[in-house]
Amino acid sequence: MSASKPREFTGRHMLLVTCTFFGVIISVNLVMAISASRTWTGLVVQNSYVESQRFDDKHNRIRAQVEAGWRFATSYEDGKLVFRASDADGAVLPLEQVSAFIHRPVGGHDDQTLPLTPSESGYAAAVALPSGVWDVIVTTGETSLGPIEFERRVTVP
């Protein structure tokens, strides 16, 4: 029987292991950084300071609308975006300057603003939305309890 001599772990082997390790780490970081920069900007509001100042006013307005029994809902039905706004008795609220901003939750594409007009089921606008998830932000003009800002996520099959 011949005895085989075990191979030595040399400095060259250590250099190869170290370079391979850091090469994989750097490659993964580059792929993730490029992917992140191409997908979502991260921009939620233009000026966070101004939005923080508006927060309390908006919170108080929403609280007053909820306490008054106002109910809001959005849906996408038969090629129409529908917004329903009713008072505590279930009657449709008379609103002016009703519009909806529609956008994808991530990506900043396919954004559009639609004027909503009164219909038998509330306020509606015809729009062809591709299937997927959409965020809808409905805003109105002044009401007795301040303007309405209602945001809801809608899924189109």
Rank of each mutant, 00 (worst) to 15 (best):
E8A: 12
A124W: 02
P94S: 11
E77R: 15
E151F: 06
L129G: 08
T143Q: 05
V156W: 07
G146S: 06
G11C: 03
T39L: 12
R152Q: 15
T117Q: 14
L116E: 03
A88R: 12
A91S: 14
Y49G: 09
H59S: 14
P130D: 09
A88Q: 11
Q112W: 00
A88N: 07
W70E: 13
A124S: 15
A36T: 09
P118A: 10
G108D: 08
V66D: 12
Q46M: 09
A126D: 10
P130Y: 02
L114D: 09
R152Y: 09
V24C: 12
V136Q: 06
F101P: 00
L145H: 09
D89W: 01
R54W: 14
K80Q: 15
A33D: 13
A126Y: 01
G132V: 05
R71N: 11
P105A: 03
A3I: 12
L81H: 02
S4W: 07
G69M: 04
G90V: 06
E142N: 10
L145R: 08
E142W: 02
Q97P: 01
S48H: 09
V24L: 15
V66N: 12
V127S: 05
R54Y: 10
E8P: 00
G11R: 08
L43A: 10
V98L: 07
I148R: 06
D111I: 03
E96L: 09
G141D: 07
